[in-house]
Amino acid sequence: MSDEIVYRLHGVSFSYPDAPVPAVTEVSAHVVAGEMIALIGPNGAGKSTLLGLLGGLAKPAKGQLEFLGRPVSQWLSRERAQAIAMIRPELDSAFPLTVFDVVALGRVPYLGRWGRLTHEDVRVVFEALEAAGLAGMESRLVATLSQGERQRAVLARALAQKPRVLLLDEPIAHLDLAYQLDTLRRLSALAAEGVTVIAALHDINLAAQFFNRIWLLSDGRLVGDGPPASVIDGPTVARVFHVDVSVWVDPLTRRPQVSIPAR
């Protein structure tokens, strides 16, 4: 695996208009190609905002955010979309789109003015359908899919973008256990191929089991950055999430796990 630096963040801050406090404050970090990073923190800690900044949807108010050696805001939107795919768990449309329609949208950054899909585009779309476990389902209407299938369609769309970086906002939020594992395994396989995966997650235990690096955000600040064992400990989790927890080590994987005592 190459250790090419994908992201270089230095003192990155961002505020929404009219908000009293910044959503992201002074975040600094380096990200190397093929890393798999879980972004954890309480609601409102700035996870989605940070993902938006990394994806180039918003510009940092302060600090530098370089993507592949160039400020992310200087990338043309089309070029950027060929390199960075972003997904959120919702997939809804006012119109009856098929799975193929949705996944083919992943080719938008590569299409010409009139939007004709080339043979190569069509091949990539079917490859992405296959990779996301949706082979043979391309003609199904999105409205008839289960939540798990929907999320795989969104993942397939991101794969059709052929990105260097995959940014995911709560990719397993609405999924049952089997689909959660399925999704996380697919993400691990992508990371092994050199795709950088950064995902905002609520499930600290799954984050600790599947990701090699954890970013812990609290009130917009990066208060923890490192392997799960160094970031997730009882006092830190208690302080950031305002709950009493006990942290123990999974004897099989040696990863920290969090239990919440019901009292």
Partner: peptide, 24 residues
């Protein structure tokens, strides 16, 4: 309008998704 057919397709999923697909 014909030149905007693809952006319109992307916009069907919402502004943020369209933007992340490189649509201005």
């Amino acid at each position: 309008l014909m030149g905007q057919a693809v952006p319109l397709n992307a916009l069907a999923l919402g502004d943020d998704d369209a933007r992340s697909l490189g649509v201005d």
